[in-house]
Amino acid sequence: MKNKIFLYLVLLLIGETLLSQTQTDSSNYFNNSNYINISTGLAIGSLRDMATSPLFYTGVLPTVDLSYSDYFNKNLIKVNLSSLNGIYVRTAVDDFYSSSANIINLELSYYRHYDEYDDGSLMHWPGISLNNYTAIRINNSFGNAAFTLDNISSMNLNYMITKSFTRKAKEKKFLWLIKYKRKQKDYLFSFKTGIPVYSLIYRPGFTNPGNATQTETLLPGYKFTGKVFSGINTNLGIARMLKNGNMIKFSYNWDFFTSGKYSLNRLDYSKHSFLFSLVFKLN
């Protein structure tokens, strides 16, 4: 519930900001420019792995995220690497259970600027991406099944919009007394949504004997399965654009995955990530 209230407040602020500002031409920011983005933040999520438990665990996962973006001739190529390391916890009756989690997410995206509906400030970017999610979780309560590895490779269809706007310089008063001049500031709003149209999932099959079988197989009992439309992921960001081309950015990611109701050892998870980023223009 607290998350929802926070989310609504963020949306309200963004909406108010968008409506009260003037539009600016953002195309300059996307002309043959390269950016590197260094982010840190926190993800809060829930996870249920039916291979070992019917219970949802709640995760707190500090996040580090690196990405490189190359804008050229209406194209955008982006490589993103995220690392999330934290714990999933669950209380049941009076008992407490925990699982460590180390997640690496690698995404390679391609977007094409579609300018039919552009007005210079609002830009449309349809695209595709390949994503690989690897999670290692260890819950010692599960004995030989304590160790679980999930590897999910997805092909996504994405749609991103960006909108730039300027908050103009203005004379203002602090507490109706102290006069000051509010500086002009440029912002870039972005929203991306992606749908994994096909996911290849590698994780424990019907049973998970752990690594105790001593066979040549590295992960005995693991199986590949496929899933069409396994979830959705979104990103909402707002960046303050500095005069030197660098940016300071706040973003919210929502990522939701399910291997499906009838899948072998169903896996469900979602993550809400709040990130603070420094974006450096490289050229």
Partner: peptide, 19 residues
Amino acid sequence: GLPNGGQLPNGWTYRFSIT
């Protein structure tokens, strides 16, 4: 048989052989 573990809806855990 090598045992692996799991959890019940009330949180109790169990193990039994799966190989």
